[in-house]
Computed example of a mutant assay.
Amino acid sequence: MSATREFVEADNAEAIITRIEHKSRKIESLLKQSKPVEALKTALEGSPPNTRDERCKSANWIVVHRAIMAIKDLDALFSSLDPEYYDILMKYLYRGLSTGDRPTCDQCLRIHERLTEKAGLGCILRSLADTMNTV
């Protein structure tokens, strides 16, 4: 029974990786068109992947990270980002902070400050308390 479950999870992981690759191409296209906010929205759609597979989570983080690092205008970001994305964005900001990479941490802290102003402390609590949907 366990081997069957692992096989189904592996098939699911391959399907998720394929979707992430498609999303990555779309994001790169948006970034080339100088649309970083749309790229971030696209990156956050369907996140986190519905899997425990670390390959999927890492692949999705790379896509989200690329979009986060492209954001320059935080006013534009928060004027057009739907509140439904706030909690998931916060999760990815904490993942970025955990990398220890200076440019990533700097960008994540800039966005974190503005996101906390916009969404409140509840956003932080929800992202830390949600252990089911990890990024």
Rank of each mutant, 00 (worst) to 15 (best):
L125V: 15
P48M: 13
I62Q: 07
M90A: 13
D11E: 15
L109W: 06
D75G: 00
R25F: 13
A119P: 03
K32A: 14
L30Q: 12
H22K: 14
R19S: 15
I124P: 01
I27T: 03
A15K: 10
R52I: 09
C105W: 03
G100D: 03
T104A: 06
L89Y: 06
I20F: 07
E14M: 11
D53K: 01
S47F: 09
D73Y: 06
V135Q: 01
P103S: 02
E84T: 12
T99D: 01
N133T: 08
A76R: 01
D130Y: 06
K35F: 10
S34N: 11
C56Q: 04
S58Q: 12
D130C: 04
Y92H: 13
L125E: 14
V37M: 03
K91E: 05
K41N: 05
I20R: 05
R55V: 07
R52C: 02
T42R: 12
Y85W: 10
L93E: 04
I88D: 14
L74N: 03
R5H: 15
A70R: 00
D53C: 05
R55C: 05
C56Y: 01
F78M: 09
S24V: 01
S2M: 10
R55N: 11
E28Q: 07
C123G: 00
T18V: 07
S24E: 09
E45W: 10
L121T: 11
A67Y: 07
D73L: 09
V63M: 07
I62L: 11
Y85M: 01
D101Y: 05
T116K: 11
L30D: 02
G96Q: 01
K26L: 15
P103L: 04
D73H: 08
I20K: 06
A129N: 10
D11P: 01
S47G: 09
I62Y: 02
I71G: 02
S24R: 05
R52L: 14
V37I: 13
L77G: 03
R110A: 09
A119G: 04
E38A: 04
L97P: 00
L121V: 12
M1P: 13
S58P: 00
P36A: 08
E54S: 09
M69D: 05
P83L: 10
L121A: 12
L121F: 15
S34L: 08
G120R: 13
T134I: 14
E28A: 07
G122T: 15
V64K: 05
I71V: 08
K35Q: 15
G46K: 13
E21G: 00
E54D: 04
G100W: 05
L74V: 09
L31A: 05
V63Q: 06
I68P: 02
K57P: 03
A15G: 06
D87I: 15
I20D: 08
P83M: 09
L74D: 04
Q33Y: 08
L93G: 03
S80A: 13
L109R: 08
L77I: 11
H112G: 07
K23A: 02
L81Y: 03
